[in-house]
């Protein structure tokens, strides 16, 4: 069959995959994980700040948060990455040279923080008003009540959505290749693409795809697990609805 052999040559060239495998493991995977992890951390921190601002009672905090969210959620990721990665490099060049890596992380984090901020905001807003009221009635300030009682509950409720956002971020990290990376900075996609161009077949890209799936698929299952546990509670905590008699000895 002609079609099968063509497909086979294009996607399943084992020699080509084998040749690129060490570089993909040592360089590509490491860089993808660094880019993703750094922007997950920075994006989550920024996202929490955006959410707290968006929920503030002060208009001058609320409005900037809304505009920020609209901009970074509304622009195509690739456009934001190019604008920040190339646009800011003349400024940041003084600090770390023409290295596009930090600006790539910054751009990914800004995009992620807009989505993560909205996720946190919806979670925090879903917490019943009585929770803050009870905390305040005990003597907690508004800030302490939010920090100790409301926000932890809100975050817990949106963990599945948050992990989904992390998955999106791992995939989007491939877009930093547009900024022009040094050989040692290339992530999975770029290595796959370079190798595919050299070898004249797509097998290295297929291998890169497998690497992405190895990272993201376990995460999607983690989402399902968290979701299930949030709905059903911890398996060890048994429900006991018996009312032990309170000694009514007045």
């Amino acid at each position: 069959m002609d079609i099968w052999s063509t497909l086979n040559e294009t996607f399943l060239d084992w020699g080509s995959m084998k040749a690129v495998l060490p570089e993909m493991l040592k360089v590509g995977l490491v860089n993808t994980l660094i880019l993703a992890a750094a922007s997950v951390v920075l994006g989550t921190v920024l996202g929490m700040i955006v959410a707290v601002f968006a929920l503030s009672r002060k208009r001058w905090l609320r409005w900037p948060a809304k505009i920020y969210t609209d901009i970074f959620r509304g622009l195509p990721a690739i456009l934001t990455i190019l604008l920040i990665g190339q646009g800011l490099s003349p400024i940041t060049r003084h600090w770390w040279g023409p290295n596009p890596y930090p600006l790539g992380i910054l751009a990914l984090s800004l995009i992620a923080s807009a989505y993560i901020g909205e996720i946190f905001r919806s979670g925090i807003q879903s917490v019943e008003k009585g929770q803050l009221e009870a905390a305040r009635a005990l003597g907690f300030s508004y800030t302490s009540g939010m920090r100790l009682v409301v926000i932890p509950q809100g975050v817990r409720r949106v963990l599945p959505a948050l992990v989904n956002q992390f998955i999106a971020l791992i995939k989007e990290s491939s877009l930093v290749y547009f900024l022009g990376l040094l050989a040692s900075q290339r992530e999975l996609f770029r290595i796959g693409q370079d190798s595919a161009a050299t070898d004249g077949n797509l097998s290295p890209l297929l291998l890169a795809g497998i690497f992405y799936l190895v990272i993201t698929v376990p995460l999607t299952h983690l989402v399902n697990y968290i979701d299930k546990r949030l709905r059903e509670g911890r398996p060890t905590d048994t429900v006991d609805l018996k009312e032990p008699a309170y000694a009514d000895n007045r």
């Binding site: 929770q131 009221e133 009870a134 905390a135 009682v149 932890p152």
Partner: peptide, 13 residues
Amino acid sequence: IGMVFQHFNLFPH
């Protein structure tokens, strides 16, 4: 001043 609410408002987490 202690306060007790209709819906208890214990911290579920």
